[in-house]
């Protein structure tokens, strides 16, 4: 009897211990990420200027993600319009469809879905690329050639995702609104004037600022998480594979968590 109590007690202690270690691990992981990201960003003003590499990364990560963002935006707008129409029609308020679609896209879905697509498309490739550079000692080779990999590899990628995402999200928004308009007005027969009128009347500058701030924050998050995980990848082929998966998972969960924080901040 007392033996059982002791075991249960020990089990609980072990669980607590494991929980504590996990929490400490997470904190030190975040601390290390902040230090790698921070020291990389600090190099933005240090010579040599990496302009050419910003442009190349903006091309690879930003332009390269446009098609997937456009497709996601179009279908998001279409389904919102369709779904919203049948819900609003129950209350005879189809005229509100334009504002419902616009606010959902601009405040939430544009930034969040855009960022999730960026993690999947560009983030995973950032992690895999840097991880492979780690395995094949290319990062060490840069060091030996007196080129700081944090300035050359990490910094341009974080800057590129941070700049690219707000641009991509704005394109996502407009494509989504246009697609929503086509479904709402052309297919479901909502009055065109009511759709655009409501949309313009209900979208306030605050909504746009909220969307853009989110996009900027998510872009920075995707860039720093994915570069960091690649940079710290275990230098084996398996390590890179695991890092790539981890980057997408942590990046996506991070986006949703940050979205909640920012939304509660903006309401």
């Amino acid at each position: 009897m007392s033996d059982q109590v002791v075991t249960a007690h020990n089990g609980f202690e072990r669980l607590l211990g494991r929980l504590g270690r996990k929490a400490l691990g997470a904190v030190s992981w975040l601390g290390d990420m902040a230090s790698v990201t921070g020291s990389s960003l600090a190099l933005i003003f240090a010579p040599p200027w990496q302009g050419r590499h910003f442009v190349l990364q903006l091309y690879a990560l930003g332009v390269g993600s446009f098609v997937i963002i456009a497709i996601t935006g179009a279908f998001t707008g279409m389904v919102l319009s369709l779904q919203g129409y049948y819900t609003l029609a129950k209350f005879g308020s189809e005229s509100l469809l334009g504002s419902a679609v616009a606010l959902s896209i601009i405040r939430e879905l544009g930034p969040v879905l855009g960022a999730l697509m960026l993690v999947g498309r560009a983030g995973s490739s950032i992690t895999a690329e840097i991880g492979i550079m780690r395995v094949t000692e290319q990062l060490d080779a840069l060091q030996m050639m007196a080129v700081n990999p944090q300035a050359r590899i990490i910094l341009p990628r974080i800057v590129a995702t941070t700049i690219a995402l707000p641009l991509l999200v704005s394109m996502f928004d407009i494509i989504g609104l246009a697609a929503g308009y086509v479904v709402g007005v052309e297919l479901l027969g909502v009055n065109a004037g009511a759709f655009t009128g409501e949309m313009i009347a209900k979208v306030l500058p605050e909504d746009l600022y909220a969307g853009w701030t989110k996009a900027l924050a998510f872009g920075a998050l995707v860039g720093s998480v994915c570069t960091y995980i690649g940079y710290r990848a275990v230098p084996t082929t398996e390590g890179v594979a695991r890092a790539t998966t981890q980057a997408v998972v942590i990046g996506s969960v991070g986006i949703l968590m940050l979205d909640y924080v920012l939304t509660s901040f903006f309401l």
Partner: peptide
Amino acid sequence: IVGAFVLAGIISISWMAVKLG
């Protein structure tokens, strides 16, 4: 291409700012 991409993004932002917001 990057220039065109950035321009398209800025036009999108401005359009939203002026027309919607």
